[in-house]
Simulated scan of single mutants.
Amino acid sequence: MSKKPQAPAAASTLRIEYLPLADLTRWPGNPKEHADGAIAASISRFGFRDPLAIDETTGRLIAGHGRLSVLERAHAAGQPAPQFVQVRDDGMWLIPVTRGGSFADESEASAYLIAHNRTSELGGWNEDLLAGMLGSLDDSLRAVAGFDLDAFVQETTAAAAAVTLPPAPPSEFLNDLITPPMTAAPAGLPQVQTPGPQAADPGATAATPSAPVPATAAPTITTPPPPGGEEYVQLVVVLPVSERNEALAVLKDVRAKTGLETTPAAFMTLIRQYAQANGVSA
């Protein structure tokens, strides 16, 4: 009586192998759409640095469908192989593929295929850091990275302007009002203003630093006072990224030493100390 063959145990080590382009098989019904032009531009500039991945059980692709489509079109058009793609004697391209991984069943493999794409989407961007990094790139690198910096700044500024401030007076949510500007002032771009600490005088305004392109001044925003309380005003403070940590450290130290509950209170303590020491009066 013959024994039923058992499936090989799952490998514990992933490996990269070069497989013929023509032998790669897609996962049926892959729901992810792709920006083929952007993928092609990235591969052309940086090479094929991100291997495809297959499920060893089915032999089908579980990551890299968009990259596979771009490679197939380029190969069919007779274009030269990208960097890190090898060429066989007969002209067939050999593609780096991650192997060694398998799943319990096709449902689990399908879930991984979705998660592989979805987890990246859910992460989003830190807009401050992204703007700073984009500002350090030249136009050609920004284009291949898939971003138009001017459009990004306009969209981000419009989104910030659409935010509705809460009607309640400032409290703990003001503790982190000193935030880094959108960009470290790349040439030709306006400074993006960020909210700053409160002041006691509702009529106070904030100074705007000079910039290569003047930015529209942010309005002074007030919030209605609580019953029997004082009206609040929000000032705009713009700081270079290099000075942000220093300012936050000082305000944090003042709060710790004085027992004050909020950053605006610590800020006003410093203002009053300076005014008293230098004979400045409102």
Rank of each mutant, 00 (worst) to 15 (best):
L130T: 15
Y232H: 10
P212W: 06
E17W: 01
P214R: 11
P212C: 03
L141S: 08
P186C: 04
I271S: 00
A63H: 12
Q6A: 12
G132S: 15
A143I: 00
K257F: 00
V241D: 11
T216K: 15
P264D: 05
A187C: 06
V87Y: 06
K257Y: 00
E231I: 08
E127N: 11
G29E: 02
I178N: 13
Q276Y: 02
T57V: 09
L14G: 13
E246T: 11
L177G: 11
S42F: 12
A215T: 14
T25A: 13
G29N: 09
R142K: 13
P20E: 05
D55M: 08
A76Q: 10
R255A: 05
A111Q: 14
A199S: 06
A277I: 04
P31D: 13
G37L: 11
D138S: 09
T25G: 04
L270P: 02
A11M: 13
A38M: 06
G132D: 15
I43V: 12
P170C: 09
T223S: 06
R272P: 01
M92W: 01
A206N: 10
E121R: 13
S42L: 06
Q276H: 03
H116N: 15
S140L: 09
E17I: 00
N117S: 10
Q86H: 03
D23S: 15
V70S: 08
L165T: 08
S242F: 06
P167C: 03
E246V: 06
R88G: 03
S171E: 10
V87R: 13
A145Y: 10
R73K: 12
G229C: 07
M133L: 14
P212E: 09
L174T: 11
L174S: 12
A160W: 15
A204F: 08
R118N: 10
A9N: 07
A81S: 04
T183D: 10
V238P: 02
A275P: 00
G66C: 09
L122P: 05
K32F: 11
V236T: 15
G91S: 00
F84G: 00
L177C: 14
